[in-house]
Amino acid sequence: MAIELIVNVLLMVGSVFCYWYVGATMPTSPESEMGAEQWPQLLLVLLIIAIGFNLYNYFKSNKKEDIAAAFADFFPSVFRFVKSKLFIGMFMLMLMAVLYEPLGFITTCLLFMIGYGLLLGARRLVPLILSSAVIMVILYVGFSVFLGIMLPRGWVPFLRSFALFVESLFGR
């Protein structure tokens, strides 16, 4: 409940700022034409009205005590969220996205498959590692060898050498 209100308020503030920003940064348009700033400004005005209505609905459908209780529980719930599977999953996802190019496809895929598999409740490590390796090979062969899609080799020297070695096995 608290996050919903926060998101709406942030959207409102962002919309007002963007309305001012786009007006200030775009060249002045001719009087009879729709200029570069007017279309986004029109959308922003509608957006501000819609968010205002949504906020009105929010306060109408939620009791004051409930909102206050949601905000009192906000920081504890943030801590709970940080400890949750979802947050760990989100963190792993971002980490994978950032490391995808530096570590290359082979390493990132293998590590992510094992890590996320454990997060999703896989208990037996050996079958998980084996299935992750098999899927990694299927994806690599399917996309890189058969479809000719470029997969990152990695920037780390020995990982890059290994990727080049794998590519040489498939005659690429």
Partner: peptide, 30 residues
């Protein structure tokens, strides 16, 4: 536990192959 990460890795391949740059994978994750 096998299917979920596999879907994400397929998605990652798709995002990266758009322009062959890592930023697109980050855009996908965000």
């Amino acid at each position: 536990s096998t299917l979920g990460p596999m879907i994400i890795m397929m998605a990652t391949i798709g995002a990266f192959a758009t322009k062959n740059i890592g930023e697109d994978v980050i855009t996908m994750a965000v």
